[in-house]
Amino acid sequence: MDDYLIGVLSNIGVISFIALSAYVLLLTGEISFGQQAFFAIGAYAAGIATALWGWPLAAAIVWGAAIGAGSAILVGVPTLRLHGLYFAIATLAFAEMVRILFELLRYQVLIDGEWVGPNGADGFRNIRYIFENDISSLQFMILIYAVLVATLSMFLLLERSRLGVIFRMIGEDETLAGLQGISVARHKVLAAGIGGALAGIGGGLYAHLTTYIEPRSFDVMLGVHSLAYGLIGGLGTAFGPLLGVLIDIGLLEAIRALAGYRMIIFGGLVAILLIIRPRGLLDEKLVHKIGRMWRLILPRGGRVKLGPSGEKI
């Protein structure tokens, strides 16, 4: 594989995490413009862990995920009392606050005669873990996809579990879910925490992929893009946001010949797509149809029946 393809595929893999993170909240019916904050927090936390503290990569990624989840829960508790646009704008405000704080963050350590660490608006250079440990870009890409596949399988299990059903139920009708005895607030905060962890993992991988992060990369554009991926790809399944990322980055890279016109074409396509399919390509109806066809082929034992409140019967 040539380096260019590896680069594009690695990018798709990393961005998939933040798309999934926005998707979890979309499941519960909340729009977040601020998932880039947890992506940034994960990136800085993991980068600091390997470059400054000499941690191994796996520990750093887990650390990034934990910090991402923790901060998402901390922000989620007060903000998730808000709904719709109010929540969306609160997350936007939070994410921009985080971005500016990273512009002010200076934490550098002298390593081998060189200052390493976040240096305000100039960014955080030399996150050299993959060079120092002789990890090739192909190996790192495989690592990204291994983590993505593991995360995705857990995610698909979650979607089929009682918890996943509860998330969708809250997304459909919060009041009704509440009347069924579901603690809406607690589940939303949980969804925010899962989203924060996913974004944190993605951020940690991103920091080590690019070896250089700067606050500017984590602006509103990234947040709105990650939100858009779920809607373009579809809200019916976790493959939806991945499809969205694939379409955006993959297709845009493929039609590089049209360089100057690509956003014009892409923007128009997305707008038209959303008129025809307001809940994305892989929306709930299509996923349900595919599931039904699948079950016709599979023997009856493979089915999971769900009771009215989502328990298996």
């Binding site: 858009a228 100057g260 016109y261 690509r262 956003m263 014009i264 892409f266 923007g267 128009g268 997305v270 707008a271 959303l274």
Partner: peptide
């Protein structure tokens, strides 16, 4: 999406 389009 249209924002991206207008900017471009």
């Amino acid at each position: 999406a249209i924002w991206m389009q207008l900017e471009q």
